[in-house]
């Protein structure tokens, strides 16, 4: 377990910024109420090629555990691939959903399809935030505002108007179904 170095930090923040935009500030400055004094914030930690979002207090406690014995701590945001790229995992969904700028709501009929790992089609699009650009990170919700996963907008809001029902609106990146499908990897 160690703090992220400069290039790693840039990668992580860039990825997060795609989803939360200017709300990244809130993510970084979020106060935590854990620990004896109830003060402190959250920090990023790297452990076993994974990036964790952890409160100060927890980090201090985790130092008591040996590196090989420590399985994980805090919220896992994503992992660094072998080639050194950073990739968000579904475990970070709660964090980015709370701060997301651009959202897509799915019709009930399209929810399951998405949860099995498919892309979002125009026909399943319930609602979309205005002014979403192409390739912007979007958080995907059900119509009852439950975050289901996240992905990347395949088309801007304006282009979405003219799409066919079978065209892809958002590209799948992660969904809640992964908790079942890829239980081991998480």
């Amino acid at each position: 377990m160690r703090p992220l170095d400069e290039p790693e930090m840039t990668q992580v923040l860039e990825k997060l910024h795609k989803f939360v935009g200017s709300n990244l500030k809130h993510v970084l400055e979020r106060p935590s109420h854990e620990g004896p004094d109830g003060k402190g914030g959250y920090v990023f930690r790297l452990h076993k090629q994974r990036c964790y979002y952890v409160s100060d207090a927890l980090v201090r406690r985790a130092t008591n555990v040996g590196r090989d014995k420590l399985f994980g701590l805090g919220t896992c945001l994503g992992k660094f691939t072998k080639s050194g790229k950073f990739r968000l995992t579904v475990t970070c969904l709660d964090l980015i959903a709370a701060h997301a700028k651009h959202k897509i709501w799915l019709k009930p009929s399209a929810e399951m399809s998405f949860l099995y790992g498919n892309h979002v089609l125009k026909s399943g699009l319930g609602r979309i935030t205005d002014n979403t650009q192409q390739y912007q990170g979007v958080v995907i919700y059900s119509m009852s505002d439950v975050p289901l996963g996240f992905g990347v907008a395949a088309k801007s809001t304006q282009d979405c108007r003219k799409l066919d029902p079978n065209d892809i609106v958002a590209l799948h990146q992660a969904d809640l179904g992964e908790y079942l499908r890829m239980e081991d990897e998480l």
Binding site: H102, K103, W105, L125, D130, R161
Partner: peptide
């Protein structure tokens, strides 16, 4: 405007 053109697309006007 958005409401009267609902048939086009449901947009969430976050900015507004």
């Amino acid at each position: 405007i958005v409401r009267s053109n609902l048939d086009a697309l449901t947009i969430d006007l976050r900015e507004f």
